[in-house]
């Protein structure tokens, strides 16, 4: 992956597949430390699956037996001196509070740290894959400045009939996100 925002797009899709109702994406930039965290209330993983999840030969995909999403992210984070942490509670054992939290940290002053890249496109495509649900919230904090967006606010304005994947809605959101991201740079 050439940009961290591509890893984020890739990993966030696991939350959709886990049938989450709420997905929160947080980006935190403090000096040379960059952290992103994806928190969902999806079906979660059993301790057994969690132990195997970094293995490329563990995957939920059905088209082949190799899955590289998390291993690629772990490699990218560790190459900069950072790390990848996953905490998960599976639905069977935790019927009330199941879900997964993926936290990746990077040192952006390391020569092997990819740029964050086009985070606007990443957020936009995540919103596109959630026309009515799940609910997505996005927060980007950079050195004390903050920009956030919650799809619940969008539905409030658009009413119950307009899906977020309408091209006209996405075109508006691209401009809105671009302005919001620029405001914290």
């Amino acid at each position: 992956m050439k940009e961290l925002s591509l890893n984020i797009l890739d990993i966030a899709q696991n939350s959709f597949k886990a049938e989450a109702e709420n997905i929160a994406l947080e980006l935190l930039e403090e000096g040379a430390l960059f952290t992103f965290r994806i928190t969902d209330d999806g079906r979660g993983m059993t301790p057994e699956f969690l132990m195997r999840v970094m293995d490329p030969f563990t995957t939920t995909r059905t088209t082949r037996k190799v899955g590289l999403g998390l291993p690629l992210l772990k490699m990218a984070a560790e190459a900069t001196g950072g790390e990848l942490k996953i905490v998960s509670k599976d639905r069977e054992h935790y019927p009330e509070d199941h879900g997964t939290v993926v936290t990746a940290t990077f040192f952006t002053d390391h020569i092997d740290c990819p740029p964050l890249g086009d985070v606007v496109s990443t957020v936009l495509l995540l919103i596109q894959s959630a026309p009515f649900s799940p609910r997505l919230s996005y927060t980007h904090k950079k050195n004390g400045e903050e920009f956030s967006l919650d799809t619940a606010e969008l539905h409030e304005q658009l009413g119950p009939d307009v899906p977020l994947d309408e091209p006209e809605v996405l075109a508006f959101l691209r401009d809105y996100l671009t302005e919001g991201e620029a405001s914290i740079q």
Partner: peptide, 10 residues
């Protein structure tokens, strides 16, 4: 831009 503009799209 403000999110209120979405109501026009609606």
């Amino acid at each position: 831009k403000t999110l209120a503009e979405l109501s026009a799209i609606r």
